[in-house]
């Protein structure tokens, strides 16, 4: 199950989405999220669906890759939709059983919520799948550059993020391995009361932390050995420069958001 998490995994492909400036993609993801919470009605949903489908198509990332990311949050999806299904008050009662009732509004709400969550995960995973983590942090670093004036260590934060992203898959594999090794010694990570289960995590967490610290230590040394001394005086292999397609993408994004807002009124 752990392997299903697709956030932070890059899918190499040669597509227009991959080539966009990461700042555009960051802004795009942000506006897309806003649109998901702004839209109302079927027309809005339809516009978002078309937009999402277009992005998926353009990104050349197989759909199955994005859908895999959903598996990890199935429980959340079920819980949220059930919550909305039963707890939305409304006039058109479809079904009543004691104090539990299902209303027309509840069904609509549950469906919309389900779409929101699924679209949220799939949409944002396009951004991470089609942007190398380094480009993403570069984008973030450059977009947040003004904050350096108020002493926010933007470069350090961006570097930390990119390292974290690089090591997530490695640590996930490590968790898998340690779990198996402890299971071979009879450890049980699945059964028992909550307290017992938390206690049972110790043989997993201690080795994981020890390993993470060892890696951090090694990495710090390797970076130093390669003349890393922080952000000052660094150049970029891939400096961010807007191309024509980036401006076009900004225009499309603006039009898209305007469309979603306009459709609210319908």
């Amino acid at each position: 199950m752990i392997r299903d998490i697709t956030i932070g995994q890059y899918y190499p492909a040669d597509s227009v989405i991959h080539r966009l400036d990461p700042r555009v993609k960051l802004m795009g993801a942000l506006l897309y999220m806003v649109s998901l919470f702004l839209f109302q009605g079927l027309a809005g949903l339809l516009l978002i669906t078309v937009f999402l489908a277009a992005c998926i198509g353009l990104s050349k990332v197989p759909l199955s890759y994005m859908v895999r990311g959903l598996r990890a949050i199935v429980a959340l999806l079920v819980f949220t939709s059930v919550f909305h299904l039963f707890l939305t008050p409304g006039e058109h009662v479809l079904f009543r059983f004691g104090i539990v009732s299902i209303t027309m509004e509840g069904v609509a709400n549950a469906v919309f919520m389900l779409f929101r969550l699924i679209y949220l995960i799939v949409g944002t995973s396009i951004m991470t799948l089609a942007t190398t983590p380094n480009a993403l942090t570069d984008g973030l670093e450059k977009a947040l550059r003004p904050l350096e004036k108020i002493r926010v260590p933007v470069h350090a934060i961006a570097m930390m993020m990119s390292i974290a992203l690089r090591f997530i898959p490695i640590l996930i594999e490590e968790v898998d391995l340690i779990m198996k090794a402890q299971m071979a010694r009879g450890a049980d990570f699945e059964n028992g009361s909550l307290i017992k289960r938390v206690k049972n995590m110790i043989p997993l967490l201690v080795p994981l932390f020890v390993s993470a610290f060892r890696r951090a230590d090694d990495l710090a040394m390797a970076m130093e050995a390669r003349c890393y001394v922080g952000g000052a005086g660094r150049t970029k292999m891939k400096p961010l420069r807007y191309a024509k397609r980036d401006y076009v993408a900004y225009l499309i994004l603006a039009a898209y958001l305007a469309g979603v807002i306009a459709l609210r009124a319908v």
Partner: peptide, 21 residues
Amino acid sequence: LSRLRMQVGLVFQYPEHQLFA
């Protein structure tokens, strides 16, 4: 199966990375 795991002991690669106590 949990009994089997103890009857067939498996020492993983770099097993010292699993020490915790």
